[in-house]
């Protein structure tokens, strides 16, 4: 089955991926994604109805530790790479318009 990605789908992907796509790039993204989906459709040749999805190869267990602070106050270091900061906080543009 040949996939066709419409404008609505690629716009939705843009929202999920937090990416801005301009005209030309959007067309390329639609084509790229359709091509990849056509390719991965190969997996439908496999009957996996009775197979559990394998999230982990090894058995995983919760790793607990005592709730004790060992690394001290790292706020200054955490903020050191911030593009914009003020009074020990990250600065972001207004969130309500």
């Amino acid at each position: 089955m040949a996939h066709v990605i419409d404008d609505e789908t690629i716009d939705y992907v843009g929202i999920l991926a937090k990416l801005e796509l301009d005209g030309e790039e959007k067309e390329k993204a639609k084509k790229d994604m359709a091509q990849m989906l056509d390719y991965v459709d190969m997996l439908n040749e496999l009957d996996t109805d009775s197979v559990e999805p394998m999230t982990h190869v090894f058995p995983v267990n919760n790793v607990f530790r005592e709730d004790v602070v060992t690394n001290g106050d790292g706020s200054e270091e955490a903020l050191a790479n911030a593009p914009e900061k003020k009074e020990n906080q990250y600065v972001v543009p207004k969130t309500f318009v």
Binding site: L19, E20, A82, P83, V92, K94
Partner: peptide, 20 residues
């Protein structure tokens, strides 16, 4: 996302536009 580290775009008005 341009908040905690790394590159941040130069022109933006609101948060989601800045992210994108």
């Amino acid at each position: 996302d341009g908040v905690k580290y790394g590159y941040r775009t130069k022109d933006y008005e609101e948060l989601h536009q800045m992210y994108k």
